[in-house]
């Protein structure tokens, strides 16, 4: 069935999750576990790179909604980057751009975290 992979890497105090494949109701729990793990380890600076994500469903978007509050409460954020037009369209359609920071490029998002740190 649908194939979905998450690769986690960390650098400069920011956690990057690279998503690959299909994120739908079937695979949403995987992403949920990944977020839960980061929260358990008190890692709240999260960048999600969508470069290799080919599809996202509403249930997939819901996972971001389910965790953003906890992350922001702990002075962190989930920033989204490198979306393909198809994936961005779904985010846009459901009004997510006003709720999340979305960047073209991963470096830019990481940079935003670093800017915040200086202040």
């Amino acid at each position: 069935m649908s194939d979905f992979k998450i690769h986690h890497r960390e650098g400069e105090g920011v956690n990057v999750l690279e998503l690959k494949g299909y994120l739908d109701a079937h695979t949403a729990p995987d992403l949920e576990n990944a977020f839960q793990q980061l929260l358990n380890e008190k890692r709240y600076r999260i960048v999600v790179n969508f470069k290799d994500l080919s599809y996202i469903s509403s249930a997939g978007l819901g996972v971001f909604m389910a965790y953003i509050e906890d992350v922001r409460k702990n002075k962190g954020d989930i920033k989204l980057t490198n979306m393909t037009p198809k994936v961005y369209n779904v985010f846009d359609l459901l009004g997510f751009p006003i709720l999340y920071e979305i960047y073209k490029d991963e470096k830019e998002a990481i940079g935003k975290f670093k800017d915040g740190k200086k202040q």
């Binding site: 109701a25 949920e32 978007l61 819901g62 459901l94």
Partner: peptide
């Protein structure tokens, strides 16, 4: 819950 959160925000 995920679908609700995602679809209607």
């Amino acid at each position: 819950t995920f679908a609700l959160l995602g679809q209607v925000g």
